[in-house]
Nucleic acid binder design. Sequence first.
DNA 1: GAGCACTGC
Length: 759
Amino acid sequence: MGTERKRKVSLFDVVDDSLAKKVKSNGGANNSVANALINRWNARPYSQRYFDILEKRKTLPVWHQKEEFLQVLKDNQTLILVGETGSGKTTQIPQFVLDAVELETPDKRKKMMIACTQPRRVAAMSVSRRVAEEMDVTIGEEVGYSIRFEDCSSARTVLNLTSGFHRYLTDGMLLREAMTDPLLERYKVIILDEAHERTLATDVLFGLLKEVLKNRPDLKLVVMSATLEAEKFQGYFFGAPLMKVPGRLHPVEIFYTQEPERDYLEAGIRTVVQIHMCEPPGDILVFLTGEEEIEDACRKITKEISNLGDQVGPVKVVPLYSTLPPAMQQKIFEPPPPPLKEGGIPGRKIVVSTNIAETSLTIDGIVYVIDPGFAKQKVYNPRVRVESLLVSPISKASAHQRSGRAGRTQPGKCFRLYTERSFNNDLQPQTYPEILRSNLANTVLTLKKLGIDDLVHFDFMDPPAPETLMRALEVLNYLGALDDDGNLTKLGEIMSEFPLDPQMSKMLVVSPEFNCSNEILSISAMLSDECVLLGCHQQLSSLGSMPPVGMHHRILIPNCFVRPREAQKAADEAKARFGHIDGDHLTLLNVYHAYKQNNEDPSWCYDNFVNHRALKSADNVRQQLVRIMARFNLKQCSTDFNSRDYYVNIRKAMLAGYFMQVAHLERTGHYLTVKDNQVVHLHPSNCLDHKPEWVIYNEYVLTSRNFIRTVTDIRGEWLVDVAPHYYDLSNFPQCEAKRVLEKLYKKREKEKEETRSRR
DNA sequence: GAGCACTGC
């Protein structure tokens, strides 16, 4: 047998002496957890087991400060408002604001609006509903929301306003509005909520609003944030006054381990078991980094606790991550299981979650939080233009946010699986804002459209690396969105209107020239929806336990649900049904066509292992793209399906957008990305039946190897035709691809000469 | 022959 991993028990393992003895007397001979617990118990004095409470909260009702708040807002253009979760600022402050400012415009008949931004759609929606309720008005009349695909604050209502109007929207939506209304003139007050989250849109809005405020002395800005960075915000916004809103959370005791943990997953599981054995009733929330890890942990926790037998209460172990379908996410709100027998030990709910439970989803009843201190975070490498996800240590702010999740309904405890020293010395105070971790091509395009010409001197709160900006400008220039002086071109103007990456917008805008805009629209919609290809969970949850199969014949369901062989068979069937040998993009198109031909029938989707919910949302995206195309008179057209050029045209159009994402098959059998010369591998989910000499890819993923995912076969000749400016050999690194391209250029020259001499 | 943190337009 393999070597058994040595258990390392951390300091808060043993809480109660008598319980440890009880475990021993019950003869847990097969129970390694109990044994480890007892050994450790014997080895350490109790006094060393705990560190002390770190964070205690004062409670002072926000409402005492209302008058002060109104006065400060009257006297200042910008105000920073700091408050913990649960302070009620999100619903209360906008209402105060309404009392504080005169919403009438010089034209007395017109009223103005208050914008309140949130980083997430659900929040914008639910907060506006709650406020409407509190104000006792119908949603959409005095309070409304505006998110992508859904505007619940129609222009008609707003025009007829007799009082002020609160509009809750996502930060991204406000940024969109700024593109057509640069001074945001419809708003009298703008409230940026959850500003500490520092989303890309929030950061761009920061810089933009600083400019707008200078040009609109009547505009008020309220920046609402959690505590830690308040002074930084203050400094950035012209030393604006800062007000504090006390929180209403219960105190949370923080515990650290005395020594670093080698294996956070194992330590997390062990801590869950310890809490379950030793702590009073209350649900547990464990933070882990991803789907696979979470499913794995759920299985292990269930197993270990069932090994304990009836000396402990029953548990309900629930996974939580965003790709889980809503029906299964709902399980986190179910009550803990009842005692096994009357008067027995009460049950416990154990939620094992990604960062989604840190901010996006709130679970009441959590008393214990286990924080191993890691999360998957996006990082961007401008040198090779690759964004990837990396498991990395969280920030102090994030740790703080996690621990707060234990104190929503009663005093709680947070177990940090790292040392206090590590917390103080190793964790950075804040998570790096997204703008420092992203490819900024799209952001730069938006900024250009907003009229920001000098990006280098744009007042970012945290300026991105110059190399990242250079890369973005370069990409946009190659795509023809910016001219050589960095000015927005007509093409760039149109591209900026699409809620897509620049490569994809470019492909869409030029697709009519290749006589295939209908097909490119479908492919774009399918690509921009995150999980069209992963039908598994949805099927499982809605229709029973069928083999979980995505169109990429991936097997994503934990093996406990299905035997791999069956899943593989079903996957192969699905592949045979829709797979296009020339590439994954074309396979996506096949799926979309089949879906439409079968009248969008959910049971057809089920029978064919495709995700109905995802296809519906892709269709929604497609409709939005169609509307934008129509606005710019870009015609919708298709090549005759029976023509040999049908797929050729589609592949060429894709290349017109993605010519910078091409890989060449070397004689060694490896793919090298063109120009960047990175060794990459076709992701095994591809549906090609051969290894093409040239491929375009949609995504570059760094996992166990460098993979390119969603790939399509293209021809070298097309590179020379479609993007000669990028495939300019005088500016090209020495490589095999270059030599092949040289031949292709010569071939083209020869053909040209021949046609000339024939004339 | 591998596996999508979380958002957003």
